[in-house]
Simulated scan of single mutants.
Amino acid sequence: MAIFGLWVINKAGGLVYERSFGDGLPRLTSNEYLVLAGTLHGIHAITSRLSPTGSSSGAQVIEGETFKMTILLTATGTKFVLLTSLAESTADAVLQKVYEAYGDAVMKNPFHTPEMPIRSEGFDRRITSLFG
């Protein structure tokens, strides 16, 4: 299982959580991550309008030559993005577990402000245990 990174993007397109795993991704500046998250948010919005058969929730998987981005859009508009190798087949299940950890550790925290950066040790611990 080759998982390179995890992003959480709020409903406005802002990056609220970023975590890299291993050496699969080059290290970017925080500003570059913000630009990438905003761009992906825009692409996702455009792809939700392109469906020839009616409504769509937007792109769910974007594949490049050497990586795959799997996107989970929640009912609140938050996007969870998992960057993996092309051969990764469990990305959807992993994103569901990340979403559960987010609900338990972040959204149940009375001190967390929705749509703001995630600063939760509990969430970090759950992500670390999930990805090793």
Rank of each mutant, 00 (worst) to 15 (best):
W7S: 08
S120Y: 01
V61D: 13
G5L: 14
V94G: 11
G42P: 04
D104V: 05
R27D: 15
E100H: 11
S30R: 12
T70L: 01
Q96F: 09
F67R: 02
F123R: 10
N31P: 11
G58K: 09
V81N: 03
A101N: 02
D23P: 11
S120V: 00
L83R: 08
S20F: 10
S85D: 07
V35F: 15
V94Y: 07
E63Y: 04
T78L: 15
Q96T: 03
R125D: 00
P114S: 01
A93P: 00
F80P: 00
R126A: 13
T29H: 03
G22E: 06
T84F: 10
S89K: 12
Y17F: 07
T74K: 11
V81A: 03
G103N: 09
D23K: 06
I62K: 03
L130D: 08
F67C: 12
A2P: 06
G24T: 13
A91Q: 13
R27H: 11
P114A: 03
S57R: 09
S30Y: 08
G122N: 03
H44V: 07
T47H: 03
K11L: 13
T84H: 02
T78C: 08
K68W: 14
S57T: 15
I43W: 01
P26K: 06
T29I: 07
S20K: 10
D124E: 10
Y17Q: 08
A105F: 04
T90G: 07
P52G: 15
L83M: 13
M1H: 15
G42K: 05
F4N: 05
G58C: 13
H112W: 12
R126E: 15
A12G: 11
A37Q: 06
E88K: 06
A12D: 14
Y102M: 00
K68T: 05
L83K: 06
S20A: 00
R126M: 11
Y17A: 07
T53P: 07
L6R: 05
Y99F: 00
S56G: 06
A59D: 04
G64V: 05
G42F: 01
P117A: 05
L83S: 02
L95D: 00
T39I: 12
V61H: 15
G42W: 00
F123S: 00
G64Y: 07
P110M: 04
G5C: 05
I62A: 00
V94W: 05
Y102V: 10
G22Y: 02
I3K: 14
K108T: 14
T29F: 14
F67K: 00
P114D: 04
V35Q: 09
F123Q: 02
S20I: 10
G64E: 11
S51H: 06
F21Q: 11
L50Q: 03
I62N: 03
